[in-house]
Design a protein around this nucleic acid. Structure first.
Lengths: 282, 282
DNA sequence: GCGTCTCCATACCCGGAGGGTATCGGCTGT
DNA sequence: ACAGCCGATACCCTCCGGGTATGGAGACGC
C-alpha cells in the first residue's frame, strides 16, 4: 500500500464523500475514485459501501481507517525525525507545559549546559495533550509527564520527583484559611478535571490549560487539586492548601521508545541527577 | 514519503550497496539511485555517504533506517488487519507457543465456543519470539505471554494465571529425587536461557524452543526453570521438581493496543473467567 | 604513478500510472 | 415520475518509474 493511497483513503473515510474528499486533497473526483477502487482490488476487500447518498465504511474500512492513521503518523514521524537528525546543528527539543516541570527545568538546563557533550536545547512550551503528540511526531525529543495522570506506556520514562497534592482555592473560600485539608473536605467541591488526562474525579468542569483553570478557580466556579510545584506558578490571587491524602503524582521525564541519542541520554542522566539533588536538599 | 521510497531506502541501508540492494528489490541500479537521490532532495538531508567502496549511512540515514522499519511495519500491519477484517468469515487467531498457555487454552476454547457471540477461533502454534511478531503484523489477534519474562508494554494485557517455577532435570540428576529445591541448589547448574526472553540467569546455553530445551536437559547439558504448567508438556524422560523460591511468572493474555473488536473482548472476558474458575477449583 | 576495477551517477527511451475533462448510470427524495 | 446528487467510466495528456548504455570518481594492485 502506497502512502498516497492511504492518505486518499483516509480523506474519503473522514468525509464519507468522494467529491469533498477530492476537494480537500486538491485533486478531482475521478482519479480519487480510481485510486480507492484499485486499493480495494489490491487488498481484495471492499472498504466502502457506495450508496446514492454518500458512502459508509465497511468493517474492513473501519479497521483500515483506524490502523491507517497510526501507520501514517509513524511514516510522518520517521520522515520528520530523519529530517531533524540531518540538520546542521543538532539540538534537543524539550516540550513542556507551563508549570509542568515540577520547577526542575531551570536547574536541569543549567546543569546540562555545563556538560561537555551538551548540545543546544530548545524549550517548546505547549499544551497538555500536545506534549505527547510532539513526542510522537518527532517535533520534540523529551517532555515532562505526570505519572498516574498520563499514559506512559507508549514512551520510555524516568521518574524525577514525587509530589504531594495541593488544592487551589479562591481567596474567600471556606477552606482557604486551613493549613491542610483532606479529600473528604473537598467531596462536595466542583473539582476541575484536565481534558486529556485521566483523573479520579468526574464532577466539576473540564479545563484545557492552567490559565483557564486558574480563571475558574478565581471565579469560584471550580477548585483544583494540583501537584505542589504547580503552586509556584499559581496566580497571586489564589490560595493553595496542602491536601494530606491526595494521591501523589510523580513528575517523569518521557521520550519515545528505543531512542538512541547520546544527547538525550546525557540530558536524562543530568535531569535525574539534578532531581535527586534537589530532593535531598529540600 | 512514499512507501516504495522507504522500502528502497531500507534495502540500501541494509546492503550498503546500491547494486546488491537493487538486485534484492528486483530492479536495476539506476532507478534505485534516482529514487534515493530524490528522497534525499525531498527530505533536504543526505542519507548516505557514497564512497568508492560501498556507502555508509549518515546520522539522518541511521535515524530513517531505524524509524523507517517501524513505520513500514505499521503500514503492513494496517494493510493486513484491513484484509483480515474484510474476509467473509471473521475469525480470531490465537498465537500460542507449545505449552505456553498454562494449560488453560482447551478450557478457554470450550467455554468461548459456547458463547452466543463466538466466532471461529484458529490456533496458530508458533515459536517464542514469533508470538509478539504475529500480533504486531496482524496475523494473530491475541496470544499468551509470560509476565516478567516478556515485554508487555507494547500490548494491552490481562493476567490469567500466576505460576510457581519448577526445574526440569535429567532422570539421574543429583536433585531429581528431591521433592523441592531452591534457587541456591541450582546455583552451579547450567541454567538454560530462552532466546528472546529476558531472564535473570546469564549462564548456561541459549535455546530457541521447548524441544531443544528438553533435548539439552535430557543430555545433561542444561537444566531449566520453567512455569509449573510447562511440566505437563515435558518429555516423559525428564523429571520436574518444584523450586520453592523461583520468581513466579504470570501467564497473561496479550493483544495489540487499542483493539476494538467485540469478538476479542468476549474472548478475553471468557479467558479470565475460565482462569479464575480454574484457579479457585485447584 | 598509472592502469584497472568497482560502484554510483547521468543520459535517454519506453510503458504505465496519475491527474484532468466530459459524461454516464443509479439511487434518493419530492 | 422526475430532478438532483454522487460515484463510476471513457478518454486524453503528462510525468514518473523502470530499462539499457555509458560516464566519472575513488580504491586497489603492480
Amino acid at each position: 500500500m502506497e502512502t498516497r493511497e492511504l492518505v486518499y483513503f483516509l480523506a474519503v473515510a473522514e468525509e464519507l464523500h468522494f467529491g469533498r474528499a477530492a476537494e480537500r486533497l486538491g485533486i478531482t473526483q475521478p482519479p480519487l475514485s480510481r485510486t480507492i477502487l484499485r486499493l480495494e482490488r489490491r487488498l481484495g476487500v471492499p472498504l466502502l459501501e457506495r450508496g446514492g447518498r454518500g458512502t459508509v465504511l465497511t468493517a474492513a474500512g473501519e479497521v483500515l481507517a483506524r490502523e491507517g492513521v497510526k501507520a501514517l503518523a509513524s511514516m510522518e514521524a520517521a520522515e520528520r525525525r530523519a529530517r531533524r537528525a540531518g540538520r546542521a546543528e543538532p539540538r534537543l527539543v524539550v516540550a513542556v507545559k507551563p508549570g509542568g516541570d515540577g520547577g526542575l527545568l531551570p536547574a536541569i538546563l543549567t546543569a546540562y549546559r555545563d556538560e561537555a557533550a551538551a548540545i543546544e536545547v530548545k524549550v517548546l512550551v505547549c499544551g497538555v495533550a500536545e506534549r505527547a503528540a510532539r513526542l510522537r511526531d518527532g517535533t520534540a525529543d523529551v517532555t515532562f509527564l505526570h505519572d498516574p495522570l498520563e499514559d506512559l506506556t507508549e514512551f520510555d520514562s524516568e521518574p524525577l520527583l514525587r509530589e504531594r497534592g495541593v488544592v487551589a482555592l479562591p481567596p474567600g473560600h471556606r477552606l482557604a484559611e486551613r493549613t491542610s485539608v483532606t479529600m473528604a473536605d473537598l467531596r462536595d467541591e466542583p473539582l476541575a478535571r484536565w481534558r486529556g488526562l485521566r483523573g479520579p474525579h468526574t464532577c466539576g468542569p473540564e479545563v484545557r490549560d492552567g490559565a483557564e483553570l486558574m480563571q475558574l478557580v478565581a471565579l469560584g466556579i471550580a477548585v483544583a487539586v494540583v501537584p505542589e510545584s504547580a503552586a509556584a506558578v499559581m496566580r497571586g490571587d489564589l490560595v493553595c492548601v496542602p491536601v494530606t491524602d491526595a494521591a501523589p503524582t510523580t513528575v517523569v521525564l518521557a521520550w519515545p521508545r528505543d531512542t538512541r541519542s547520546p544527547a538525550l541520554a546525557a540530558f536524562v542522566h543530568t535531569a535525574t541527577r539534578v532531581a535527586t539533588a534537589a530532593h535531598r536538599s529540600s
